[in-house]
Simulated scan of single mutants.
Amino acid sequence: MKFIKNLLIITVFLLLISGCSFPTATTSGSTATKMQQKPIVESNLKIENGKLNIIFLDVSQGASQLLVGPTGKTMLIDGGDNDKEELMLEYLRSYGVEKIDILIATHPDADHIGGLDAVVSNVDVGKIYMPKVTKNTKTFESLLTAIKEKGLKITTAKAGVKLDWEPGIEIDMLAPVKDKYEDTNNYSVVLKLKYKDRSALLTGDAEFISENDMMDSGKDLSADLLMVSHHGSAGSTSSKFLKAVQPEFAVIQVGENNYGHPTSKTLQRLKDQDVHIYRNDLNGTVFASTDGQKWSVSVEK
């Protein structure tokens, strides 16, 4: 039975990622009203019109970034864990987001995609990018089901892809570089965004192997803003990688956990290169915006 289930998940994923579409399902009344309920998120951090806004949402031990561009285009990267479905919908409501133009699931780990099925089911979604890797979990299956029921398709996320999102903003996928990795973390989608003179690198859970592949690719990894990979684990954000990126400040998406994230080794590597650190567990949601000339960073606490 387990083999059959695995085969079904892989089959559905391959159908979706190859561009096959399915009939669109109607949204039930109970889920449609979720966005209209009394908010559980009240933030004093506001979208700045005419700027690139990157919001590192506080989803506890998980990751999610909401991007809003100068003309109002939106992008959502990951969506926290399974228990963050309602929170994700409330975050979108609180920032006035009614459509996700681009949705990216960096890799199939639950703490990154757990809340995305609710987003897909309840919000208008444009293009979806996911790396070509599957995982035999209910979480991954639920996301595929939500995509299928909305009649959407998946575009393969891999190094070399350029995203058409906002005029004047260059977005390059730098990873995954290779087609095969042993650890799903190294399939993580890594994005570099460049707006005029400012740039950001968003890394998912990429670890040393993926970092080395990116450096070996010869791509320009330099960025002012770095999202620290894998919640600050010891197996990511090497000193060599930091020297290639040369960030001025970094954001660690982390909450209470039993893994020791962020580790003292990673924090020390950041401090050794004079990187200013923001953390969701200490600062709540972290809001970075730029006009292309300078960054402005605000925090909830």
Results as ranks from 00 to 15, higher is better:
213 D>A: 04
33 T>C: 05
16 L>F: 05
257 N>W: 01
221 L>N: 04
209 I>N: 05
11 T>A: 15
236 S>M: 02
151 G>T: 04
269 R>D: 03
266 T>A: 08
53 N>Q: 09
226 L>S: 11
75 M>C: 11
45 L>A: 12
233 S>M: 09
164 D>S: 11
114 G>E: 05
292 G>K: 02
98 E>Q: 13
167 P>R: 02
271 K>T: 12
217 S>K: 04
92 L>V: 06
273 Q>F: 05
75 M>K: 04
18 S>Y: 08
88 M>D: 04
173 M>K: 00
200 A>Y: 12
215 M>F: 06
93 R>S: 11
200 A>W: 10
221 L>P: 08
290 T>Y: 04
139 T>F: 01
268 Q>C: 04
98 E>N: 15
189 V>Q: 08
152 L>R: 02
156 T>W: 00
130 M>Q: 11
191 L>H: 10
266 T>S: 14
272 D>A: 12
17 I>D: 07
295 W>P: 08
115 G>V: 05
10 I>T: 12
165 W>A: 09
187 Y>M: 01
222 S>E: 14
233 S>K: 13
192 K>A: 12
268 Q>R: 15
140 F>S: 00
171 I>K: 07
102 I>P: 02
26 T>V: 13
95 Y>S: 08
17 I>G: 10
116 L>K: 05
176 P>W: 07
81 D>E: 05
19 G>K: 07
231 H>N: 12
79 G>M: 06
215 M>E: 11
61 Q>T: 07
71 T>E: 15
216 D>E: 14
180 K>Y: 06
174 L>Q: 06
281 D>C: 08
8 L>Q: 11
272 D>C: 05
156 T>F: 00
3 F>N: 13
95 Y>N: 06
240 K>M: 04
175 A>Q: 06
170 E>A: 15
278 Y>K: 04
15 L>M: 13
276 H>S: 07
201 L>K: 03
4 I>H: 07
99 K>Y: 06
150 K>R: 15
134 T>L: 00
17 I>L: 08
39 P>W: 00
174 L>G: 09
255 G>N: 01
269 R>W: 03
273 Q>P: 02
215 M>T: 10
82 N>F: 00
191 L>G: 09
214 M>Q: 08
234 A>Q: 12
47 I>T: 14
192 K>E: 10
234 A>R: 10
118 A>R: 03
205 D>S: 14
52 L>G: 12
